[in-house]
Amino acid sequence: MTNRTVLVLLDTPATALRSPALEILTLARSLGRVEAVVTESPSVQTLAQLGSHGVELVRQAELPSTLGESAHLSTTVAQVLAAAVRAADADAVLLTSNFVTKEIAARVAHDLDAGLVVDAATLVEGPDGRLVAGKRVLAGSWDTECEITTDVSVVTVRSNAVVPATVDQPVETTVEGFAVDVAAGAVTVVERTVEEIDDAGRPELAEAGSVVVGGRGTDGDFGPVEEFASSIGAAVGATRDVVFEGWFDQFVGQTGVTVTPRLYVGAGVSGAPHHRGGMQASQVVVAVNNDPECPLFEIADFAVVGDLADVLPQAAAAIRAHKES
């Protein structure tokens, strides 16, 4: 452990921290002293989670109330982070990895002249003390390492890259406010709605450890996909085509949700470039398809040539039987 200070931006402090946030807190701890940054009041549960992850200080931005919904714009949050970096004299900023956090990260890296790596899977201290981020690229065929050569590093870390772990001795967490003077920019928020995450249901697609995706081969019937996903506790997603057809609402792909689970199962998914761009960092890939020539088979670890409507229910029944035994 060095005397580095690492700031972690928390996505959902007002409710409770979700796995991706706990993962980056765990990773941040391996790099130095961790402080959290929030733009809204942390809940009691969040504070307890922070304490058990060894975080003693939460820096809460106090924004001008005149900002209204503009407080949520990436440019605003980036200014908050930049101010927090200066206040804490921080060496690194860690964020979870999604389209919103990547925007914030890019903006803060720009404003601080800091090096940026997005979608990192690993982050360690290199031989000369600089941070080195690792990621898997080109449809999972290459591993790269990228050294950040600036004094301040900004890194977004993909889901499931590390297993969240708490500290042996929980600490007391205090919240310290800091005023950030952000002027309203030229962008107006005309409308903003946030959908509540229902944790009683399936795991979140973007953060799940197992993901089952239904493609065009489902012909619009997601019954077998849902049943199989339930048997293994997986999140369910679709391909872009399927969403365009109106058969399902969330798709995995280059322009949709990026998934990085331990287990990915594609059922009736051909494996078009667009889709592979959103699941290439999955650890184990399973394909079920009638067509043995489909591109997904090329990157699969295990594949079944067959009708998903037969294969998935049979697999689900066998898994349920195994779990009960």
Binding site: A109, L116, T144, E145, V304, V305
Partner: peptide, 26 residues
């Protein structure tokens, strides 16, 4: 501000285990 310090091809994926469903694929 960043420098790619290492790029290595991953070991070739072991051939996928492919099962043709004849009633026991699931």
């Amino acid at each position: 501000r960043t420098r790619t310090s290492r790029a290595e091809p991953r070991p070739p994926r072991p051939e996928a285990e492919i099962v043709v469903d004849k009633g026991e694929g699931g």
